[in-house]
Design a protein around this nucleic acid. Structure first.
Lengths: 128, 128
DNA sequence: GCAACTGTTATATTATAACTATAACAGTCA
DNA sequence: TGACTGTTATAGTTATAATATAACAGTTGC
């Protein structure tokens, strides 16, 4: 899993890390049951602190993407364990609403946004 | 313009405010050339600080949505003043990518996300 | 058991962001 | 002049983000 973080981004490091891992799950780059790097390994290879990685892993665990086993490591869950709940759907829709509002203001019509969605999905084509 | 902010949200107040104003522009609820409430008026009616409103207005100004006239007030710009630049498009696509990655993980397919986009756009139907 | 690995917890420190409070300054306009 | 605009300055509080070190506790293979 190739991860590059932007140190000068306005997006927190732990959030960037979460997004990258979810992206890797979406593409199938990391598979169900697969073990993620340990907090020490990953923090070392990214030159960031152990606790920053731990925060990302902990939140991914709360959101259902991974299971943390004390003493053993962090494992990617099976798909059914993080299938969208009604609340997940609601949150995703709210994000889309905000993006579409800005997009419409900026004279992008629905088709352009839909094209972006299709492009995003085709980029994610993995056998996961 | 009806605005309600969530004080206990993880989204900062000034960001929520920006999003609501952009949304109001998108629906046509506030029109081109229209004057927004003064920082004191709005901060008072929302029971938040003057500087929080000022921060939202200042950023909206940088992003091209409004023009701030010292001593006079804040005016909504014309559409052409905030039409999407290449960089705006890129940022919007990156947000969509992140959302789609999570959505795919959570077993939502492209059609479901596209439906959400269409629903979001129809909600925004205004003659702006 | 021991060693080497896991995640966890505790404590502390630094830096930055977010929000508030108050006051004064400066431009606009009837 | 007075009442409204946004702006700037100063200060303080609170929360978040990130780091640094150390110790604790569970797992695993030798």
């Amino acid at each position: 899993m190739i991860i590059k973080l932007l140190l000068d981004s306005d997006i927190p490091l732990y959030q960037q890390l979460k997004d990258k891992i979810v992206y890797a799950i979406a593409t199938g780059e990391v598979k169900q049951g697969e073990q993620l790097p340990s907090v020490r390994q990953l923090s070392s290879s990214l030159s960031i602190n152990l606790h920053t990685v731990n925060k990302a892993y902990t939140q991914l665990s709360v959101e259902g993407f991974v299971t943390i086993l004390k003493g053993r490591g962090v494992l990617v869950n099976t798909k059914d364990m993080y299938a969208a709940s009604d609340n997940d759907r609601k949150k995703i829709f709210e994000q889309i609403q905000t993006i579409c509002a800005e997009a419409k203001c900026r004279s992008l019509d629905a088709d352009e946004i839909i094209n972006m969605c299709n492009k995003a999905y085709t980029t994610l084509k993995g056998d996961n």
